[in-house]
Design a protein around this nucleic acid. Structure first.
Length: 158
DNA sequence: GCCAACGTTGGC
DNA sequence: GCCAACGTTGGC
């Protein structure tokens, strides 16, 4: 049984359209231990991932992606020219792990944060918990299915 | 190990 | 641009 997840991305930096264009992308730059642990320890190939656009006028879940690789070291941690460079990491002792993501399908209707917040069926969804700053988080299967339905997608047809 | 200072996230 | 929430850092 695959699990479901949600990742946040600022569309100015990397949008769902960018993921569709690229076909596949390493989910790099995550520098939070809890988020890393989810990717490193719990994500499995084939898991479904809600793709959320943050830091925009109307933040929303806009598409579904899929985990496309096992976890491996985030190469940006070793690159001194990269903004996500971590001087305390080395190839022998990597600190930050990531997985690759592939686009599955864009939602026919984006599901805005405001909509998620007001829906009693989504109570407990980590994204709408106050003060939540995680950029990678697990999503209950029932919540996942509900968000897809709100977005006009059939959860059984992924 | 405590905790104040600081930086970041992200909604509004 | 503001600011609340939260994680990290570093002095002690």
């Amino acid at each position: 049984m695959n699990r479901a997840w949600l990742v946040k991305s600022e569309p100015n930096a990397y949008s769902y359209e960018d993921l569709e264009r690229d076909g596949r992308t390493p989910w790099d730059g995550v520098r939070n231990y809890q988020a890393r642990n989810f990717m490193r320890d719990e994500m499995q190939i084939g898991d479904a991932v809600l793709f959320y656009h943050s830091n925009v006028a109307d933040p929303a879940v806009v598409g579904v992606a899929r985990v496309a690789s096992e976890a491996y070291p985030d190469p940006t941690q070793f690159d001194a020219d990269d903004p996500h460079f971590d001087p305390k990491a080395s190839p022998d002792a990597p600190r930050w792990m990531l997985v690759d993501l592939e686009p599955l399908r864009r939602l026919t209707q984006a599901v805005p944060l405001a909509r998620l917040k007001e829906d009693p069926a989504l109570e407990g969804l980590a994204l709408v918990r106050r003060g939540n700053r995680l950029s990678v988080m697990p999503v209950d299967d029932a919540h996942f299915r509900h968000v897809l339905e709100l977005g006009g997608a059939d959860p059984d047809a992924l």
